[in-house]
Every structure is written in C-alpha cells, then in structure tokens.
Design a protein around this nucleic acid. Structure first.
Lengths: 148, 148
DNA sequence: ATTAAATTTTTGTTAAATCCATTATTAACA
DNA sequence: TGTTAATAATGGATTTAACAAAAATTTAAT
C-alpha cells in the first residue's frame, strides 16, 4: 500500500501526518475485509466483538460496563448492541441479584456455535490480511503499535 | 498501550489476531483524539478530510468521484458530506459545463480559513499522538504499514 | 438517429453511532 | 435515618453510514 498513490498526491507529506493517514488507510482496509468475512453470518464487527468478549468471560457473566470497557465504544450503543444479539438468541440478559442496577449478560449455546463457525473464516481472513508479513515483522509491528 | 491489559485478558493471543486487534485499538485511540481536536470547529473528521482534499486540488475543482477516490469511503455519503460543507459555506458546488453529469466542487475562502485554523491544532494533536516515537521508528512503522 | 449501455450523482430507506437526559439502584455520610 | 452523590443501564432525538435503486446525462453501437 502506497499512501501517496492512494490519496493521489504528488506532494511530500510530513512523516507524522503521513503515519496517521497511513494508519487510517490500513485500518479501513482491514476493517473492510473483516466486515466482508462476517457478512454471511449477518453479524457486524461490533456484535462479533461483544460475542468474543462474552466467550472470553467463560461462565462469569459480564455486565454492560465490563463489555464497554473491553470495547472502546460508547455505553449507550452497547445496550442496543446487546439488544440485537439478544433478539438473535446469541446472548441472555438478566438483572444481577446482588446489585440490581447491573445486568448479567452471558453468551448462549447458539452464540458459541456461531462464533465457532466464524472462527475459521476469520482465521483465513486474518491470514490473508497479513500475508505479506513474516513473524519477525509482525513482532516488530506490535512493538511499534505499543508506543501509541 | 498493552493489548492484553486493555482488553483485559490473561490468555495468550495468537500473533496474527493480536496484530489486528492492536491495530484497531490504536486506530480508535488516534481517531478519538483527532475528533476531539476537531470538535471546537464543529466539523467531523470526514468533513475535514474532504476539505483537505479540496485544498490539495488547488484551483482545479474536484468532482464527487475524485473526492471519493481519495477518501476510501462510500460515494452515497460523499454527496451528503459535501451538502454539509456547502451549508457551512466551506465549499461551492456547480454543475460542470463540459459534462453535465459531473459537479465541480471547490473550497471557498472560508473553507481555507478554517483549515488554516485547524492545521495548528491538528499538528499539536499529531505530535501528542506520536510523542513516543522517534524519526527512525516512524519510518519503520510506515514501512511495515506498507505491507498491508 | 434511435436505442442501449455506461457514467456520475442523487435520493430513499434502514441500520448504526452519538449525544444528552432520565430512571433505578446502591453507597456515602452528616 | 434521610439526603446527597455515585454508579449502571436505558431511551429519545439527531447524525451519520450503508445499501440499493433511481435520475440525468453522455457514450457507443447498430
């Protein structure tokens, strides 16, 4: 991916600016491919992420703020994201007995099933996205990303 | 930024998966800071990008597909993005005489003025976002991003 | 010249994100 | 205990995005 070519400019862009544009372009591209991979399952990247978080929780039910924390997204949205997953039968929700302000959200068997299906496709997609990298380069990239 | 810490997991994540999650986290963080910097100007990142593209065009007016090309976003949105900028007086739009399907979009003086204002703030924001990088690291990062 | 095809932009519809206020419950504490 | 503050989640209103289809115009083809 060549930044200047994509945004069709002949001017030299300052390294800082270029880095941030570069990052956006790459993220867009990656996101596009992942959305596409999820499309047959009629699930959005966000919904998928919530499911993944819930699976990660094991038997411990998660409440909305926990999900929200792990998501870097806005709470008000998370409520409705969970609504969507609920209506698809992928999660269950009930009020927490100990603290009735909280809700306990758990992934259902159906949720686990669809995640299992998605896992394979997603793995392939990730491989494809990263096909030009060797292991060392990936490590290096992760180290650099840590600096943000 | 430590991935495992942010998404609060103790499991080891495969390098490929980790890279992609890492990228999303970084992008989100960056985007958040830039949106915040633009907020006082009541302009969205997308709108700002359009303005920047138009400034890059100099006197050559751009049509919608040109803008769209340089944006990695969907066309149907671009029309309405330009509508917004038009209503704020930052761009002008008229039908192209030679090919009446096309529109000619140009940035106005007001548009240039606000861009000039934003430039400074954005520069600071970029510096802040990248404060942990030295020049070599940025170059390295850009090289790695090219591999996507 | 007439019709079909392609290009460029717009519009309608629906879904998703964002902002801000509100409700419900619990915690703090004078 | 009663009052205020803090926390957790929800809901309404508005923007923005995504998808599909339509409208307007030009190009190509017979």
């Amino acid at each position: 991916m060549n930044v200047e070519e994509i945004i069709k400019t002949d001017k030299r862009i300052a390294l800082d600016k270029r880095t941030i544009i570069h990052l956006s372009l790459v993220y867009n591209k990656v996101n596009e491919q992942i959305s596409l991979a999820l499309k047959p399952f009629e699930i959005s990247v966000q919904q998928f992420n919530v499911l993944r978080i819930l699976r990660g929780q094991g038997d411990t039910p998660a409440n909305l703020s926990t999900i929200n924390d792990r998501m870097v997204t806005k709470m008000s949205n998370t409520t409705r994201l969970v609504d969507k997953l609920l209506s698809k039968g992928y999660v269950s929700r009930k009020v927490c007995k100990i603290n009735r302000r909280k809700v306990e959200i758990k992934i259902t068997e159906e949720g686990l099933d669809i995640l299992k299906e998605i896992d394979g496709i997603l793995f392939e997609t990730e491989q494809r996205i990263l096909k030009n990298f060797n292991k060392e380069e990936l490590k290096e990239l992760n180290l650099l990303l840590d600096k943000f």
